[in-house]
Amino acid sequence: MTPAVPATPTAPASVSFPALGTTASLLVADPGAMTAARRVLDDELAAVDAACSRFRSDSELSRVNAAAGAAVHVSALFAEALDVALHAAQVTAGVVDPTVGSAVRALGYDITFAALRPQDLGPLHVAGPSAGWRAVDWDPAARRLRLPPGVLLDLGATAKALAADRAADRAAEVTGCGVLVNLGGDLSVAGDPPPGGWRIALADDHAAPGTAARPTVSITEGGIATSGTSVRTWAREGRRVHHIVDPATGDNPTPVWRTVSVAAFSCVAANTASTEAVVLGDRALDRLRRAGLPARLIRMDGTVERVCGWPEDTVQENTAAKSSSRGAR
């Protein structure tokens, strides 16, 4: 009898396309599962956009913000996104807070980044400290929400990460194979990974060509999120402005980190920690160590800091996916 020859592992299949103002990438360990996995991802992206987009007048978030001062009933998906945002605010002591909507708008980010033109922006305005997550009147059992007058929610810091987690989990369940979802630097994996895990290339900008010279890491579960201040930027009155806001001031935080990548048990947890790190500056190192989260932080001068076992940089060809800071909101 001729002995059986082990089958050669099939390379994961991948597809990338524009979504949520950034690039969505989907990888599946079984190429035959791509159609079903893509359908799941498309459904999740459409749902989260309809629920949480700041840039759609017909989104549920726009309706909630327009009703500030009055109680509104929200959908199950919006309730989940709000719960995630409020939890992020709680665990970060308000450093990552959903009540920064007015501050983000004041800095000029009140339309999609693709449509934002510096010549259309008025004078730079800083809104001042945000109301804070405790000001949100939220009854999760009844799904009833009331915002104080003048308070605007912005779920951008966590909603995209939640979409990545939801899509990866559901696609893995539907297809029965390993799945990776990357939404502009918010990356989640579920199911059985390919041999050696999913290889991730790290970059400031996912849209930059080539991955051969980029450091890579491998993950088999959970998520990685990268937040940064070097790509999604615009100029106002001679000053460079970006999308990450310190709720304590309503302004961009003091520039310390160009890019922060964090690995955690979920993309939401990783995104919360990476955004918090950008706001905290040098204090982020001790905070990440206390939380036990592996992280790679790049200072404005290019110096790299690593904590909690994040590996030394290695470069590998044919990287499976790219994680970047672009599209963080």
Rank of each mutant, 00 (worst) to 15 (best):
R236H: 08
V231R: 05
L77T: 08
T319E: 09
T229A: 10
E312V: 03
R146H: 00
H87C: 04
T275G: 05
A13I: 11
V96S: 00
T220R: 12
A273K: 02
S59P: 07
C308D: 15
I224H: 06
V64E: 02
D42T: 03
S16G: 14
V136R: 12
A163W: 09
D120C: 01
G108Y: 02
W310M: 05
G150W: 01
P215R: 12
R38Q: 15
S25H: 05
T314Q: 11
F78V: 07
A235T: 15
G132L: 08
V307Y: 07
S261A: 13
F265Q: 14
T175Q: 08
R39T: 15
G150T: 01
H243E: 01
A127S: 14
R63G: 11
L77Q: 11
A89I: 04
R299W: 12
D58A: 07
R329I: 10
C177N: 11
A235R: 13
Q316K: 11
G197M: 06
V100Y: 09
L41C: 05
F265K: 12
A208W: 02
G21T: 10
A277C: 00
L45K: 07
P9G: 03
T23C: 06
A29F: 11
S75G: 11
F113D: 09
T249L: 04
R134L: 08
A159E: 02
V72E: 11
A328H: 13
S75N: 00
F55G: 12
R232N: 15
S324N: 05
V189M: 10
V260H: 01
N182W: 02
V72I: 04
A127Q: 05
S324I: 10
P12S: 07
A36F: 13
S130M: 11
M1S: 08
D246W: 04
D204F: 06
A24M: 03
R63F: 06
G191Q: 13
T303D: 14
A93R: 14
A81Y: 05
G32R: 13
V262P: 03
D110L: 00
A163Q: 10
L162N: 04
A46I: 04
L45N: 08
P98V: 09
R239P: 02
A328T: 12
A320I: 14
A71V: 14
P215H: 09
N65G: 03
H73W: 04
A212E: 15
A161I: 00
A284W: 00
A321S: 15
S324W: 10
L61Q: 05
A70D: 15
A141V: 15
A263G: 07
A208Y: 06
D246C: 07
T259Y: 02
D83H: 01
T216K: 05
A68G: 03
P294D: 13
H206I: 15
G309S: 05
T35F: 11
L121H: 07
R236Q: 12
D169N: 11
R105Q: 01
R144E: 14
A85L: 06
